[in-house]
Amino acid sequence: MTTTLDPVLEQSRLERWLDCVQTRLASEKESLNALDAAIGDADHGSNLFRGFSKVQEKLQSAPPEDIPALFKLVGMTLIGSVGGASGPLYGTFFLETAKALPQERKSVDLQTLAQALTAGLQGLQRLGKAEKGDKTMVDALAPAIERLQQGADLRAAAAAARHGLEATIPLIARKGRASYLGERSQGHADPGAASATLLLECLARDDDSAA
């Protein structure tokens, strides 16, 4: 099934997305921490929850004017509050997405968003130097964003992220602290890929484009 008109996302819809991320992190941070316990130091969920809670505070206190400002706010807030590797990586993802979005827009069509997210992913990969298969958040983000670029809807993108997450289980980590585990990192899903999947599933949650 194809749609003739590209679906449009309003700014309010993207704000509901961030609300969903914070709510899901509140209830799932322990399970993200548990994933991180297997190959890291058991704080990935708590760190991201701190960051996205701060995002909610900032959205209340200084609502962004438009969609690029929204992405910039998220990026700056994550960089300033998460710490670890995930703070700069997710922060850069949002900041580079913001830069690639058309200015002063309060709505964005899915293809434009997909292109901007691609720029975000490239920024993230420039900083983290991770490729697909290194057992990182890239393994969930990249297939999802590629699907969007190909014209798929948000639900298909979220499904691609989850598929990418599951595919990290047998991989050997090559980046970050998990890389020191070598073969012992096999058999566990990557917590970064898990949080990236959560992000994309929230983006797809009240997707009306695929109905």
Partner: peptide, 11 residues
Amino acid sequence: PGEVFTSPTPD
């Protein structure tokens, strides 16, 4: 100092 075992932030 960052959080426990978490690097500090740029700011």
